[in-house]
Amino acid sequence: MRLGLAVVWLLFIVGAMLTPGNNFPAPSFNFEDKLIHLVCFGLLSFLWCGVGVKRALVTGVRGRVLVNYLIFGVAAGIVLETAQLFIPFRSFDYIDMIVNEIGGAVGLLAYFKIPTTNIGLD
């Protein structure tokens, strides 16, 4: 279940960030774009941190959890933001990249703090 959700969410984010376009709706408030980046990458990191991991055996950020976090909580945010340099009507933004990384860290923390056994994510 967790792997399926993680893959779907990754594909959604890749599609959203790498789709050309200049007709995006105007933000409702000043930091709406940053909040969206934070939530998207927080959820991505949260989902991927647990892929291939038996939660009961995890005692800290190491092993598979660390690898998953580095790939999907850190590298994905950098790669996807940088890739926007090559997409028509999209732009690279250092602040977006930083917020992506903060979201990834929030997702990692949430992985350890939110019990997921009852919702079928373990």
Score class of each variant (00 low, 15 high):
Phe92Asp: 03
Tyr69Cys: 14
Ser91Ile: 01
Gly52Cys: 01
Ile95His: 12
Glu101Phe: 11
Val51His: 00
Ile114Thr: 10
Leu43Asn: 05
Ile71Pro: 11
Ala56Met: 10
Glu32Gln: 15
Ala76Pro: 03
Tyr69Trp: 15
Leu11Glu: 06
Phe112Pro: 07
Ile95Leu: 15
Ser28Glu: 13
Asp96Asn: 11
Asp96Gly: 10
Leu85Arg: 15
Leu43Trp: 07
Asn118Ile: 09
Leu80Val: 03
Gly52Pro: 01
Ala75Ile: 06
Leu3Glu: 09
Val65Thr: 04
Glu32Phe: 09
Leu43Lys: 05
Ser45Asp: 08
Leu18Thr: 04
Val61Lys: 07
Glu32Leu: 08
Leu38Pro: 01
Asn30Asp: 13
Val79Gly: 07
Arg55Tyr: 13
Leu70Asp: 02
Leu18Trp: 00
Tyr94Ile: 14
Thr59Tyr: 13
Leu5Phe: 15
Leu10Thr: 15
Thr19Gln: 09
Arg64Ser: 03
Val79Lys: 04
Met1Asn: 11
Pro27Tyr: 08
Val65Trp: 02
Asn30Leu: 14
Asp93Gly: 11
Val65Arg: 07
Asn22Gln: 12
Gly104Tyr: 03
Gly60Asn: 12
Cys49Leu: 01
Glu81Asp: 02
Asn22Pro: 00
Asp33Trp: 03
Asp122Ile: 00
Phe46Asn: 05
Thr59Asn: 14
Phe72Gly: 06
Ile119Gln: 08
Ala16Gly: 12
Tyr69His: 15
Leu57Ser: 15
Glu101Gly: 13
Gly103Trp: 00
Gly104Val: 00
Leu5Asp: 10
Val39Pro: 06
Arg90Val: 00
Leu35Gly: 11
Trp48Ile: 03
Pro25Glu: 12
Leu10Ser: 15
Val53Pro: 04
Gly42Asn: 08
Leu11Ala: 14
Ile95Arg: 12
Gly120Ala: 01
Asn118Asp: 13
Pro115Cys: 09
Ile98Trp: 10
Ile119Ala: 10
Val39Ile: 15
Gly103Ala: 02
Gly21Ser: 05
Ile98Pro: 05
Arg64Lys: 13
Ala56Arg: 14
Ala26Ser: 13
Ser91Tyr: 01
Phe86Trp: 11
Ala105Cys: 11
Asp122Gln: 13
Ala26Leu: 14
Leu66Gly: 06
Leu70Tyr: 04
Leu80Pro: 04
Tyr69Gly: 14
Thr82Arg: 04
Cys40Trp: 15
Phe72Met: 12
Glu32Trp: 08
Gly77Asp: 06
Gly21Asn: 08
Phe24Met: 13
Gly42Cys: 09
Met97Pro: 01
Thr82Pro: 02
Leu47Glu: 05
Leu121Gly: 07
Ala105Ser: 13
Ser45Arg: 03
Leu57Cys: 10
Phe89Cys: 07
Asn30Glu: 14
Phe86Ile: 00
Val99Ala: 05
Ala26Arg: 13
Ile119Cys: 08
Arg64Pro: 03
Ile78Val: 12
Cys49Trp: 02
Ile36Tyr: 05
Ala16Val: 05
Val7Trp: 07
Val7Met: 09
Phe86Pro: 04
Val58Phe: 10
Val58Met: 12
Ile36Asp: 04
Ala56Pro: 02
Lys113His: 13
Gly120Pro: 01
Arg90Cys: 09
Val74Thr: 02
